[in-house]
């Protein structure tokens, strides 16, 4: 396909500003950067609808089975959740700084910030795992190990709590999966930065990974209140 396209009269290689970072299909580095960013935005639109499906289900069932959802929510560890939120926000900050460092072409700073972001991401997953294991010990994992005690149910119907927990595990699990992909992405960026493959002219990849990371972050910003803070906990 590219051969036939290259024969197009509009392709005039001699007139192009040639840079090693420029892929063959683009006219100039500006266009390449635009396309990359726009591509990621379009991808995030996809992701939004991906999560949108579960959010829709959540909203529907929450209106149907509110007491169960509130009871399930009260069973979650809100402090841990708050800590996770904090860690994730901090990682977003380091990520934003990393993009800044990449743009400025400061390799050492970029590497350090990428590592910080990855570490914070791993810390988040660690806390998530702790919470999952608590749920397991409380026998509150639908499908695999679900024998809730009466105190855990807080007077709400068992099946509604079970539904809430299904959502809890689906949503946070899906989010964790995205975190893992994000960490993988950032690790690749770190390796590229280590090898000096990221220049101030060609920092686009870092920027795009950053967009993805912020998106995953924002999903959590919605998940945290939806899952942890419902049911008038502080009344």
């Amino acid at each position: 396909m590219s051969e036939s396209a290259a024969s197009s009269p509009l392709a005039a290689p001699s007139a192009r500003h040639l840079s090693p970072a420029l892929h063959h299909q683009f006219e100039d580095i500006e266009q390449q950067r635009d396309a990359g960013n726009f591509g990621m935005w379009v991808f995030l639109a996809t992701e939004m609808l991906f999560f949108g499906g579960v959010f829709t289900g959540y909203i529907m069932y929450r209106s149907l089975y509110y007491p169960g959802f509130a009871a399930g929510s009260h069973g979650l560890e809100v402090n841990l959740g708050a800590a996770m939120t904090f860690v994730l926000l901090a990682s977003s900050f380091t990520m934003a700084m990393a993009v800044h460092a990449a743009r400025a072409g400061r390799r050492g700073m970029l590497l350090g910030l990428l590592f910080a972001t990855i570490l914070l991401g791993i810390a988040f997953l660690g806390m998530k795992f702790t919470e999952y294991s608590h749920k397991w010990h409380e026998q509150m994992v639908p499908g695999l190990n679900f024998h809730p005690s009466l105190t855990e149910l807080r007077g709400a119907p068992e099946h509604a709590v079970e539904l809430f927990l299904c959502f809890y595990f689906f949503m946070t699990g899906l989010h964790a999966l995205h975190m893992i992909i994000g960490i993988g992405l950032l690790s690749v960026m770190a390796i590229l930065a280590w090898r000096g493959r990221i220049s101030c002219e060609h920092y686009n990849r870092v920027e795009v990974s950053g967009l993805y990371w912020h998106f995953v972050d924002i999903i959590w910003i919605y998940l945290f209140p939806l899952l942890y803070l419902i049911g008038g906990r502080y009344k």
């Binding site: 396909m1 590219s2 396209a5 290259a6 197009s8 509009l10 392709a11 892929h23 063959h24 299909q25 683009f26 396309a35 591509g39």
Partner: peptide, 9 residues
Amino acid sequence: IGARDLAFP
């Protein structure tokens, strides 16, 4: 559209 290839081959 007169491009050499798609944006992301």
